[in-house]
Amino acid sequence: MKNKTIKSYLIVFILIIILNFFLPRILPGGPVAFIQGGDDQSFIMTEEQKAHLLSYYGLDLPLHEQFYQYIFGILTGDFGLSILYKTAVTTLILSHMKWTLFLVGIASIISILLGIILGILSAWNKRKKNDAPFFLAMLMLGAIPEFILGMVLLILFSTKLGWFPFSGSTTPFAQYGEGIIGIIAGMKDILHHSFLPMMTLTVVNISSIYLLMRNATFDVLKEPYIYTAEVKGLPLKRLLFRHTFKNAFLPVFTLIMLRFGFMLTGAIFVETVFSYPGIGKLLQEAILSRDYPLMQGLFLIFTITILGMNLIADMVYPKLDPRIRRGERTVFE
């Protein structure tokens, strides 16, 4: 990778670290204001309690000292203590992250795979006859807001039909027993709870990948080398997946990597609708409660994920495209 790329990554990263400190603090009201309660508070806080909280969380320190502490924390890998949960931010994020990763991970894999395959087939069919009905259907699917789809699925399958649970990620306090039977029972329970949110994420995301892949494939199908491959009498499978896919995937690849990074935050709507204990819900609570350390931790995780995905894209891209072995092409141009 070129020095210039590394430099631009570094600059963006430093900017984000600085932004990360100030962004939460721009918000009106601090964590203590939240603890005091808004218009629905339930206890009376005395001035002593308030002063104690402020000093306990170091919020009475001058801003620059808070900033040093924050930078020091990042350098030592310590994001501090969540004010809302009174738990280490790292622990908190990890315990929620696993659910989101599970949800987003599987949904991404399914939607990427299906989106790619459908995109290629659709582009091929478009050339042969007409993929309009299918294309339109996908277009419509892509126009459905995530929360609407989730809501509709929830009402139909949970409230009305009762096929799936209404909320949560597992049956509370479930004991799955020992050995393989226990593991299977556990997996069944988790899948049962995650089915609808996963479906929602998959369906909503499939369309954009499909559209990207379809257009990319369509462009590739016009290339002379595809003509060559066709004239060569290659079987359709080989033609599409060896000759077309490899080329059409290149422009889609970076976008997919970027999307994957953003999907982590995007899960917030699905997690809200299905009350799934993922990172999106945590983020919402963190913002609402002005939990500075937690917000900083989450924000950093999100940006690092997105940057990381970019970095991976930059590093993998030359491997996919033999024409670019010197790593000229990066997400940051």
Partner: peptide, 22 residues
């Protein structure tokens, strides 16, 4: 382009949530 890079890397939704929240 530099500005665009930063904006593209910030989790947009997070920023919208923060801004809209207050």
């Amino acid at each position: 382009n530099g500005l665009a890079n930063v904006i593209m890397v910030i989790p947009n939704l997070l920023l919208v949530l923060i801004v809209v929240a207050f």
